[in-house]
Amino acid sequence: MKTKFLLIVSMFLTTTINLNAQSFNIATFNIRYDNPKDSGNLWVDRAPIVSNLIRFHNFDVFGVQEGLKNQLDDMSKALPEYARYGRGRDDGKEAGEHSAIYYKKDRFKLVKSGDFWLSETPNVPGKGWDATCCNRICTWVYLEDIKTKKKFYTFNVHFDHQGIIARKESGKLMVLKIKEIAGNEPVLLTGDLNASRESEWYLSVANSGIVKDTYTDVKYPYQNNSSSNGFRIPRGMTVIDHIFMSKQFKATRWGILTDTYFGKYPSDHFPVTATVNL
């Protein structure tokens, strides 16, 4: 009888530990906006490939950059197991590119969500500092793991590609906004920073003490080339798409996914993914 009791207790403890130690896959993916000039790489052809890639690699939570409303709708239709949140950068509604976040509906529950712009006035749509081309937006969600009841924030962002000051200030703003919104809660940050690991704005985030790069936790990162490709064979090893995490997380895998179809790429960026444990 005593042996049977100890066995039951042991099984209960093992189950509890496994529940509390559940890992999940986080990813960042610049899907390239639906540009009619992308001859040979049009969205209508890439859309099913992008969705197939996401499902096969089993992303649990992922942030996309450059997604126009029609692209996000295509992905949601192809991936009904995911819910999404994110507003358009141009008007705070549906216009312009989105930095939307997708998450598995059967695994996570949305608790809170929001957006802010990378500018001196982050609460309203607008360009920031020396940015000349585009508004830039950051989207965030506060998710609860349905099984473990653990909660965490995920932020997703796309930094400017031209303004040097805009990128430097965006790095500082991200740190401030994460502190303001998430406080001491667990945090993940995905995004296209338009910068390598040597840039000032990357370092302002990575060395902030608030989050660090998941890449640095992993003994054998899967990095065979750069994270962007321009729809051509990539050259060099520069990574501009990043996944950061707060101290409550541990990363066990990190990689750049270089999937192709008929020799073509699903986007002009490769998705970057990490397996994390909260």
Rank of each mutant, 00 (worst) to 15 (best):
I54N: 12
M174P: 00
F231V: 11
R232S: 14
D90K: 06
K179W: 01
M174G: 00
K112I: 02
W43F: 13
Y202A: 01
E97P: 08
V111F: 02
C133Q: 13
I181A: 03
K37A: 14
E200M: 06
F12W: 03
E198C: 00
N224Q: 13
I240Y: 08
L189M: 09
T148Y: 07
L110P: 10
I181R: 03
D90A: 07
S76E: 01
K104R: 15
G183C: 06
T260H: 08
F29D: 05
V141N: 10
L278K: 11
D130S: 01
L143M: 06
F244V: 00
A27F: 11
W129H: 01
G96F: 09
N30F: 00
N18W: 09
T214R: 11
G92V: 13
I164G: 11
L6Y: 12
N135H: 13
M245I: 10
R197F: 01
I178Q: 03
V272F: 08
R253T: 14
R253E: 11
S10C: 14
T139H: 07
D74F: 08
I26V: 15
K177M: 12
L72S: 06
Y142Q: 12
D160V: 00
L42C: 11
H161I: 09
D60C: 11
E94H: 11
T258G: 04
F155G: 01
F152R: 02
R197N: 03
F108L: 10
R87N: 13
L13K: 03
A21V: 05
A95Q: 13
G191R: 04
N41M: 06
L110F: 02
L13G: 03
N123W: 12
R232C: 05
L188Y: 05
G183R: 10
K177W: 01
V187H: 04
L257A: 07
S99V: 08
M1Y: 04
T132K: 13
H269M: 08
N52Q: 14
V211K: 00
